[in-house]
Simulated assay, not measured.
Amino acid sequence: MIAIKDRSAVRAHAGAMTAIIMGCIDMHKFDGRTAIVTGAASGIGAAIARDLAQRGARVVAADLDADKARSVADEIGNGALSCRVDTADADSVAEMVALAMDRTGALHHLVNNAGIGGPQAIVGEYPLDGWRQVIDINLNGVFYGMRFALPRIEESGGGSIVNMGSILSSVGIAESAAYVAAKHALIGLTRSAAIEYGQRGVRINVVGPGFIDTPLLSALPEDRYAGLTALHPIGRLGTSEEVSALTCFLLSDAASFITGSYHLVDGGYTAP
């Protein structure tokens, strides 16, 4: 096993494996398709936007940070667009979908990736404004995305949606009640929509990442980083590219018989 402290070697190994898997699946092609990715300015969202563009999709990179979203769109190319979206605002989400339709003439895929962690507090002391904000972004925002995108995807001949859940869609954790509640609810919302749209040509699934090696986590002291790593039986944290690999598979025609499902990419975190 690669030593936990050898972070660069772990990332290089994970990246190489992801490239092999993604490169071997021709059915991951998205030529001629339009895909919206929310929370696309960095991290998992940027990785998904990049992978979709590399496989032929015309991507709409959407984020609250319009400048960073524009930078991602410029970087990934293939006619990518960008827009500012506040996923907690239904009108903003509707405008995002309208932009995709107006500029590309169709919409085939949506990745509801935008989300926040929210305050940390026990339930009896949880701030009410924090609860509302997390539910607005992490749950209502996903509903808004599907509410406005589903008719357009159906109109465009069908496609697929991935909603970004979490390991906390299936297990709990202390002092994050709003986040856990929203991510659990996401599965029920997804399954209901999958039943409704199964015969309308739209598949809808949830991806549940474990702890992902972001710059924020990489900056942790070595003992805290190692503690997080130890929670994953595989012996390391995940990468944004690994989450993207699973997401792009579920969006693709290679997953044509998969809908209403919750798929973990968690290094075994939920296995014990």
Rank of each mutant, 00 (worst) to 15 (best):
S176C: 13
F211I: 10
G118K: 05
A177S: 15
W131M: 10
R224Y: 04
N205R: 04
T214W: 04
I204M: 04
Y225A: 08
R224D: 13
L128T: 09
I234Y: 01
V207A: 03
N140A: 11
S156P: 13
N140G: 01
I135Q: 06
L216A: 15
P233N: 00
D129Q: 10
D213V: 00
I167F: 05
G172Q: 01
P209W: 06
V180F: 11
P127A: 01
G208C: 14
A230F: 04
V180K: 04
Y144R: 07
V123S: 09
I212M: 06
G201T: 13
R200C: 09
P127C: 02
I187R: 04
A177P: 06
E175P: 03
I137A: 11
D136W: 05
G210T: 07
Y126H: 10
A181V: 11
A177E: 06
T214K: 04
L139E: 11
S160K: 05
P151F: 06
L150E: 09
N140S: 14
H232E: 04
P119R: 03
G210Q: 09
Q120Y: 05
P127G: 01
Q133K: 15
P209L: 02
L220A: 08
L186E: 08
V207Y: 00
I167L: 10
G210A: 13
L186M: 12
G210Y: 07
R200S: 10
Y126R: 02
D223H: 15
A121W: 02
I195L: 15
S166M: 06
P151Y: 04
V206Q: 01
A226C: 08
E196K: 12
V202W: 10
P119G: 07
A174D: 11
G188F: 02
T229G: 12
F143L: 15
H184N: 09
D129C: 03
A185S: 14
A178R: 01
M164T: 14
G198V: 12
Y225N: 02
G210L: 07
N140R: 02
Y179D: 11
E222C: 03
E196P: 09
L168M: 12
G201C: 13
M146E: 12
I204C: 01
Y225D: 05
G172F: 03
M164V: 13
I153K: 10
G165L: 00
